[in-house]
């Protein structure tokens, strides 16, 4: 198969379908891949990075040296040490105490879901809009020769020996 025919086959629907499928599979594998923390300290660090220091601006509990952050780190360490709750449950416990503002990564439910959904919706709308616009512009840019144009070309051809 030469390059031209390969390009042509990619441009056809099955090519795009394979590409979309591959993207989906890679994303699924990426999301499902078990690269979670192994040691207790890794778990403590991972959870601390998800929690905002309640008395700081934009700092995680992991980074902050504030006393409130230290208390939260201690509590995370204690909870991890007891081994009764998983990471999400510990985060939920802290969210229950301090409220949703303590989450550095917004939830994917309720009003917070807009944070995830809006950029995707805007991107899809923008791509769709651009595609439509480009198609229109392309069709407009196609010049159609008028009778006068053809007459001029015919005259010129006659002049050429």
């Amino acid at each position: 198969m030469n390059l031209k025919s390969a390009n042509r086959s990619i441009k056809r629907w099955p090519g795009w379908l394979v590409l979309a499928l591959a993207t989906f599979v890679l994303l699924a594998v990426g999301i499902a891949a078990d690269n979670g923390p192994q040691t207790q300290q890794d778990r403590i660090d991972a959870i601390s990075k998800r929690i905002a220091c309640p008395t700081c601006q934009g700092e995680s509990v992991y980074v902050s040296r504030a006393s409130s952050a230290e208390s939260i780190r201690n509590e995370i360490a204690r909870q991890v040490g007891t081994g009764q709750l998983n990471d999400d449950e510990i985060v939920a416990y802290l969210e229950d105490s301090f409220g949703g503002d303590v989450l550095l990564v917004p939830r994917s439910t309720g009003l917070d879901a807009l944070v995830w959904a809006l950029p995707v919706a805007v991107a899809v709308a923008a791509i769709a809009g651009l595609t439509m616009a480009f198609r229109r512009w392309r069709s407009q840019s196609l010049l159609v020769a008028t009778d006068d144009d053809e007459a001029i070309v015919a005259d010129l051809r006659k002049e050429v020996p």
């Binding site: 006393s67 230290e70 208390s71 509590e75 204690r78 105490s97 301090f98």
Partner: peptide, 13 residues
């Protein structure tokens, strides 16, 4: 001492 009570009640300040 470890801030356990403060965290349980969500006390930051």
């Amino acid at each position: 001492d470890n801030g356990t009570i403060a965290v349980a009640f969500g006390v930051a300040k």
